[in-house]
Design a protein around this nucleic acid. Structure first.
Length: 468
RNA sequence: UCCCCAGUAGCUCAGUCGGUAGAGCAGCUGGCUGUUAACCAGCUUGUCCGUGGUUCGAGUCCGCGCUGGGGAGCCA
């Protein structure tokens, strides 16, 4: 059903061809291409409701502004009244024979999005127009669909959706460089006696930043609602220059109480499969497009994924397999070292050929809040690695034992005062619990085959770039 | 932040040994009664990323800078 009184969406037309045959309809959209002879012409019109265009036939004898229409350029917005006609003999399944065409907004010959192949780099420089291009129409429809799938998945499981703060004055999130948030005059900030910036005079009476994770707050809610998740923007001020890092990205962070690492991984696997299945069912035309133009192994890979069991391997075992592989790595493998990108890719692409959870990492290379294992050397952490992307999910069982957590903070030289409320969760009704963080853009990259995070965000923010 | 590569017409690119620039697409004009990456004929389009240098002469060689891309680190 159209939400507009008079327009029929192109999606509706494609979904119910027979019903519209011979009927008078009105559509509105933007010109993808236009070509004409002296007495008739064709317009490829797209209204963004569907991946495909509709072909408009306009004839000199049927409309009263033929010469005006032939002069329109790619990009112009038109509303068109005409007769829907099935065309089983032609390349397109149907067309609209126009009886009236209204020019809503003209375009010009220098419209940047010409009907030809453009590079993704060029399209990034016209981020305000690229949603009109096929690739981005498909990317952002899939992105929307995947977001809805995630909400639907957690809703069906009875999870509570919690919105954790975007501005935080807690300095203990420990997940990288943060963006400062302040109303102080940065050219002339108030100073304390010893010459430091006096944040007690700042808006929040403390140094504040944009969040790098909602996990600690999500844990508070998990110990009230049992099962919660966050889905919101996240900010990292790291000077990262790669195709899979952005300064602003969206993260999904479930947190589950009365649950251990195994429960956590089962949830991650189920969520991943649910989301991908939902997109495969809901956006078949988009997946077909990506498979044809972006990555011709995509459809197979996604279909196999939803029917496979993800791999499981401990860090210790993974190190042994890498050593025994005989593969020459730029960075040699040794127990205790962090897995390099080349190692992760070898594990997921060569050793398993599918997504795989690597578990139980040495405590030295993981965060303070991860639960200490019985061996005293490893923690109950997991990274879910997927072919082509690397780390898609990072999670862990959280340390719920107050004295063990305090000991870890001491070992790492962290100030317990800063974590007072986080520690109180362990004082009042502590329970084993676990959670993970899913980089939403990385999931979209995996589902679409797009290889640069800048092409799955509407207006990407990266080092040195925040235009639009 | 480190390593590598690139920057020439609106877009995608070519440009030989250093001798003041070219193609396809798109655009414009005309033609064409069913096209669908429309077709046919003709035409237009340049701060060769910036800056300094070498040279009689630089798109081409060298230095510095900027921008973009790929890889690494950090991570999601």
């Amino acid at each position: 059903m159209s939400i507009k009184r008079e327009l029929t969406s192109i999606r509706e037309l494609y979904s119910d061809l027979k019903n519209y045959d011979g009927k008078e309809i009105k559509v509105g959209g933007w010109v993808r291409s236009i070509r004409s002879s002296n007495i008739f012409g064709f317009i490829e019109l797209n209204d963004g409701t569907y991946f495909k265009n509709v072909q408009i036939v306009f004839e000199e004898q049927n409309i009263d502004n033929y010469n005006l229409i032939t002069k329109q350029n790619t990009g112009a917005s038109l509303s068109i009244t005409g007769t829907f006609v099935l065309t089983p003999e032609a390349k397109q399944p149907f067309e609209i024979k126009a009886t009236a065409i209204e020019v809503c907004g003209t375009s010009t010959p220098d419209y940047p999005l010409q009907p030809k192949k453009h590079s993704l780099e060029f399209l990034r420089s016209i981020a305000h127009l690229r949603p009109r291009a096929n690739t981005f129409n498909a990317v952002f429809r899939v992105r929307s669909c995947a977001a809805q799938a995630i909400h639907r998945f957690f809703a069906e499981k009875g999870f509570v959706y919690v919105n954790t703060p975007i501005v935080t004055a807690s300095d203990c999130e420990g997940a990288g460089e943060m963006f400062k948030v302040t109303t102080l005059d940065i050219g002339n900030p108030p100073k304390t006696k010893d010459g430091q910036v006096d944040y007690s005079k700042d808006f929040f009476a403390a140094a504040a930043n944009l969040t790098v994770s909602g996990q600690l707050e999500a844990e508070c809610f998990a110990t009230a609602f049992s099962n919660v998740y966050t889905f919101g923007p996240t900010f990292r001020a790291e000077n990262s220059n790669t195709s899979r890092h952005a300064a602003e990205f969206w993260m999904i962070e479930p947190e589950i109480a009365f649950a251990d690492l195994e429960d956590d991984m089962m949830l991650a696997e189920e969520m991943t499969k649910y989301t991908i299945s939902y997109v495969l069912e809901t956006c078949p035309a988009e997946i077909e497009f990506f498979n044809k133009f972006i990555d011709n192994t995509l459809a197979n890979r996604l279909n196999e994924l939803v029917n496979s069991d993800f791999g499981r391997v401990t860090y210790t075992e993974a190190i042994r397999l890498l050593k025994e592989s005989g593969q020459q790595f730029e960075y040699p493998v040794e127990w205790g070292c962090d897995l390099q990108t080349e190692h992760e890719r070898y594990i997921t692409e060569k050793l398993f050929g599918k997504p795989v959870f690597v578990t139980d990492y040495p405590k030295e290379i993981k965060a303070f809040y991860m639960r200490m294992n019985e061996d005293g050397k490893t923690v109950a952490a997991t990274d879910m690695l997927v072919p082509g992307i690397g780390e898609l999910i990072g999670g862990s069982q959280r340390e719920e034992r107050l004295e063990v957590l305090e000991k870890r903070l001491d070992e790492l030289g962290l100030n317990k005062e800063d974590y007072w409320w986080y520690l109180e969760l362990r004082k009042y009704g502590s329970v084993k619990h676990a959670g993970y963080g899913l980089g939403f853009e990385r999931l979209i990259m995996y589902i679409t085959g797009m290889t640069n995070i800048r092409d799955v965000e509407a207006f990407p923010r990266t080092v040195g770039s925040a235009e639009f």
